[in-house]
């Protein structure tokens, strides 16, 4: 039991995070403060929502690389639509619009994958390019900095803000609540519903799933639609918090997100992945992206550090598992 515990990715990632924080605090005591924490949390929101969606797809045995394109499409289109029709739309309706657009694009992925049985990587690579190209060609390629008032309202809404006794400023935006909601909802679906267990089942073995009578197509359709909806949400949060609807943003972030998910213990071969592991993976990636400078490593080393983390963090358990299997044979 304890041995299994130490072999888990989650444990390794958590240890690295703790070590990193200790090291960072040692080199700069200001690192350990409410300000840093709230900055890191802010930086985790969009990445975290993306990662939860990507994890769900990996668990089902597929992969989705189109979510950034879906996010930016949903965000930009809902911004443009709102500005062109009812600019005063409250934020939650703009958000709903973006989520619906995201879900619709995700459903297109789901249709191609579930109905026609096409390989998931190829479908989503294709749709990544198509969604992005479509957006830039037909919707617009200009950055919009005068957002609808609703989105600005959202970015100013805080769960908590203030200054600690030590004089550190902190602010927890309302968007953090969205991440928490997504985390709880996804955890509930995966762990507590038959639907969630069916997602694990098809990730474990599609053929077996068919034979016990799981409607594999319906489950796959749901998975990609859900990932699309989360992408729509992440996109509009990204636009609101950055106070800018930029059609060139987000795309390119896919691999960091998938890296975070894999670091958190999800397997590219499907059937494995947890919400908690994914959050740890996101935390580590965000930490490296934002705070590497604190421990004296130049920021150009970021991608090297992330790459090494992936190699070690996912390679070590895989290597241990292989050795254990060899010993058993």
């Amino acid at each position: 039991m304890s041995k299994q515990f130490w072999m888990r990715n989650e444990t390794l990632v958590a240890l690295v995070i703790i070590l990193f924080c200790l090291f960072a605090t040692a080199s700069d005591p200001r690192f350990f403060s409410a300000t840093t924490l709230s900055d890191l949390l802010r930086a985790s929101i969009v990445l975290g929502i993306f990662a939860i969606g990507a994890m769900l797809v990996l668990v089902s045995g597929g992969i989705d690389v189109s979510f950034t394109a879906i996010a930016v499409f949903a965000m930009y289109v809902s911004t443009v639509l709102t500005l062109g029709t009812i600019p005063d739309l409250p934020w939650y309706l703009i958000f709903t619009l973006s989520i619906v657009i995201g879900a619709a694009l995700g459903a297109l992925n789901g249709l191609l994958i579930a109905r026609f049985g096409l390989p998931t990587l190829i479908v989503t690579l294709g749709t990544l390019s198509v969604f992005r190209g479509f957006l830039l060609t037909f919707v617009g390629s200009e950055r919009i900095s005068s957002l609808p008032p609703g989105m600005r309202d959202f970015s100013r809404s805080m769960i908590a803000r203030g200054t600690t006794e030590a004089g550190n400023f902190y602010a927890l935006p309302l968007a953090l609540a969205a991440l928490v909601f997504v985390v709880v909802l996804t955890w509930f679906i995966l762990q507590k519903t038959t639907l969630g267990r069916c997602i694990f089942a098809i990730g474990g073995s599609v053929e077996s799933a068919r034979r016990v009578g799981i409607n594999v197509r319906a489950i796959q359709f749901f998975v990609y639609m859900y990932a699309g909806a989360l992408a729509g949400l992440a996109g509009i949060i990204h636009g609101s918090m950055g106070r800018m609807a930029d059609p060139f943003s987000l795309v390119g972030l896919e691999l960091s997100v998938i890296a975070a998910v894999v670091l958190g213990g999800a397997r590219l071969t499907g059937g494995y992945g947890t919400v908690s592991g994914t959050l740890l993976g996101v935390a580590l990636i965000v930490l490296v992206q934002n705070s590497l400078i604190v421990v004296g490593i130049p920021s150009t080393w970021q991608s090297v550090a992330i790459g090494l983390l992936i190699l070690i963090g996912t390679g070590l358990p895989a290597w241990q598992a292989k050795r254990a299997a060899e010993r058993a044979a």
């Binding site: 038959t194 267990r197 694990f200 089942a201 990730g203 474990g204 073995s205 053929e207 077996s208 799933a209 034979r211 016990v212 009578g213 799981i214 499907g270 059937g271 494995y272």
Partner: peptide, 18 residues
Amino acid sequence: SLFPNLSVAENIAFSREL
């Protein structure tokens, strides 16, 4: 036709649950 990633309990109960 089992699910390697799921527990013994869940494998046994899966079709019954469905």
